[in-house]
């Protein structure tokens, strides 16, 4: 095979030369057999080679398929485990809820002598600490990414946006707030982790529903919240709707303080 001349040194010339060199004919030294000459002897060794090639191909196909099956079964096992553990979490949560109400009942028995004022104070504090469910008139804000927003763009709802909305609601007098059914407590953090937003260290998904009980704006539009949502819509195209009405919030999970101790424990140690 002749090598094409390369005068201009252009890229296509280089490529042509490369191809010409790469496809050198292996059988160039063999003269064509005469039509009459016996050519069968030349085919004998090729058969075992073809057997090997067929074997090679089928082995590759089989092993690739086996790897696929392996991956699929691993995935299935993981999915299975996730659903089992999720069910177990739900079960234990139910147990916790039942025992919480038992404890509440026992406490009511023990504190039989408390005055109604003290009881009212207790329930008010429990409400503020977000350890009980809370329902009442309030506001529900639903906010979602801009239509067609790409991953990593500013047209998506960020942790910062949720923080702003929540802080605005606190400022206008909310006594309890939940984001996607995650009740906010004194130790709740709303923060981003990669693509996800974590509330109470749990990832929450779109659309984000922020429910607040007891804002002073119940039944009427609030300029602060509306202004914030309008800004988010204008600047980033975030889609949001606001509605007022009765809102029910779940009880929050209050974690034990890490360093603080009650007086008795402090005295004992």
């Amino acid at each position: 095979m002749s090598t094409p001349t390369l005068e201009d040194g252009s890229e296509s010339g280089l490529l042509e030369r490369f191809i010409a060199q790469a496809v050198v004919d292996e059988y160039a030294q063999v003269a064509p057999t005469e039509p009459g000459a016996p050519g069968r002897r030349r085919h004998l060794l090729a058969v075992p080679a073809m057997v090997v090639i067929g074997l090679l191909i089928i082995v590759a196909v089989i092993s690739a398929r086996a790897a696929d099956e392996q991956r699929q079964s691993t995935r299935d096992a993981l999915v299975e485990r996730v659903s089992t553990l999720t069910a177990s979490v739900a079960e234990r949560q139910a147990t916790v809820d039942g025992q919480t109400s038992t404890v509440d009942g026992l406490r009511a028995d023990v504190l039989g002598g408390v005055t109604p004022e003290q009881e009212a104070e207790l329930s008010r504090l429990a409400q503020l600490a977000a350890v009980t469910e809370l329902s009442g008139p309030g506001v529900t804000v639903t906010i979602d990414d801009a239509p067609g927003a790409e991953a990593g763009s500013l047209n998506r709802v960020l942790d910062r946006d949720l923080q702003d909305i929540v802080n605005t609601l606190w400022r206008t007098g909310a006594v309890g707030i939940a984001v996607n059914e995650e009740r906010l407590t004194g130790t709740t953090a709303i923060r981003g982790a990669g693509e996800a937003i974590l509330v109470n260290y749990r990832p929450i998904g779109r659309p984000y529903v922020i429910s607040a009980v007891g804002t002073s704006t119940s039944g009427q539009t609030d300029s602060g919240l509306d202004a914030l949502l309008a800004t988010l819509a204008d600047d980033y195209g975030l889609v949001s709707t606001t509605s007022t009405g009765d809102v029910a919030l779940p009880a929050g999970v209050v974690r034990d303080p890490r360093f603080a101790q009650t007086d008795q424990e402090g005295a004992g140690s």
């Binding site: 085919h43 090729a46 058969v47 075992p48 080679a49 073809m50 057997v51 090997v52 090639i53 067929g54 074997l55 090679l56 191909i57 089928i58 082995v59 089989i62």
Partner: peptide, 14 residues
């Protein structure tokens, strides 16, 4: 005969 060889290889592999 070469194609037969290929098929034999495939059969052996299976």
């Amino acid at each position: 005969i070469a194609i037969i060889g290929l098929l034999v290889g495939v059969a052996i592999g299976i």
